[in-house]
């Protein structure tokens, strides 16, 4: 997909309104030993700052445990904020009262990691779609019916009458995920958070779901946060890409900029590790770092990638945390390699 808009310095698209603003956001989980003594904090999300604009998709990529779902759940208010703030349409979430939270939640659609676990097995499609409306005070039957019809049409679960009485186990994986999307759309949200929406699905239906999300986005001018560990889908479905490692966003770029050349050595490794279907692959080895992502309970000092990084600068990378450096106007990396380009 071509990139959506020209970017301003710091990678912000022009003439667009920020739906979501994240400032220095931290989410730590306290670990207690024997249920009593504090053993430390898991720094699952350790300082994230960015804005998400109307009608744009940001892809968040990274391997499991790097904090992607923690970011999603913190935005959704499922995790508490340890430090930093979240603004939704310029309103600080920490100032919201109970009603305000309800309104905020209804403005974000959430598509969970696991479609099979996301749907209550004992509810019919109809009830699954009615539930969020009841909670949010939409009780008028005619209005409920109208909305259900509309979302099911949008996600192409047709004929609608056939699907309404079905239970989730009667649907294929792809149909279940479309139902999850329908549920996320029923309150007419401004923003979608899609946490690995297709990683459990077969290749032949993955693209269908992603194209569906894209169509919904265009029709409703939705802002989408698309979380994935699969780098190969991002070029088709996002304007910007952020890479995460060890609880931090370590690279931010326009999609075109990143595809041209990843700047951070970790993102470059993700690129190298991704196999496109190509018979030439048989004859070459992949140049990827050994080792494992760091413990977030005791992250290494300095750059969190330094124990695995071939380009590590001794005395610097292993001691000081690299700042976010804007190397191009639409492309930043938190890496000391670019210290002279700030």
């Amino acid at each position: 997909m071509p990139s959506l808009a020209k970017t301003l310095p710091n990678g912000q698209p022009q003439n667009q309104k920020a739906v979501l603003r994240i400032e220095n956001l931290h989410t730590w989980f306290e670990i207690r030993r024997m249920g009593f003594f504090k053993a430390g904090d898991v720094r699952a999300l350790d300082g994230a700052t960015f804005e998400l604009y109307e009608g744009e998709t940001i892809s968040i990529v990274g391997e499991s445990g790097c904090g992607k779902s923690t970011l999603a759940k913190t935005i959704l208010g499922i995790n508490h904020i340890t430090k930093g703030s979240i603004f939704f349409e310029d309103q600080d979430l920490s100032t919201l009262d109970k009603e305000g939270w309800k309104r905020y939640r209804s403005a974000i659609g959430y598509i969970q990691q696991d479609p099979y676990g996301a749907l209550p097995p004992f509810m019919t499609v109809q009830r699954i779609l009615e539930e969020p409306m009841k909670i949010n005070g939409i009780t008028d039957r005619a209005e409920q019916k109208k909305r259900i019809r509309q979302v099911l049409e949008e996600v192409k679960l047709a004929p609608i009458e056939d699907f309404l009485p079905k239970f989730p186990h009667m649907l294929s994986g792809g149909q279940q995920q479309r139902l999850v999307i329908a549920r996320a759309m029923i309150l007419d949200p401004k923003m979608l958070i899609a946490d690995e929406p297709v990683s459990m699905l077969d290749a032949s239906v993955r693209v269908e779901i992603l194209q569906l999300l894209q169509a919904l986005q265009r029709r409703h001018n939705l802002a989408i946060l698309y979380i994935t560990h699969d780098l190969s889908t991002v070029r088709y479905f996002s304007e910007r890409i952020f890479a995460m490692y060890g609880g931090k966003i370590i690279e931010k770029s326009s999609t075109t900029g990143l595809l041209e050349k990843p700047l951070h050595p970790y993102t470059a490794a993700l690129f190298e590790a991704t196999s496109d279907p190509d018979v030439e692959n048989l004859h070459s080895f992949k140049d990827v770092p050994a080792g494992e992502p760091p413990s977030l309970l005791n992250p290494p000092p300095g750059c969190r990638f330094h124990p695995r990084c071939k380009k590590m600068i001794k005395g610097l990378c292993d001691q000081q945390m690299p700042p976010e450096i804007w190397v191009h106007e639409d492309h930043a990396a938190a890496c000391w390699l670019y210290k002279d380009q700030a």
Partner: peptide, 8 residues
């Protein structure tokens, strides 16, 4: 497995 472990 994760992407890098998979490649390894």
């Amino acid at each position: 497995l994760d992407l890098l472990s998979q490649a390894n």
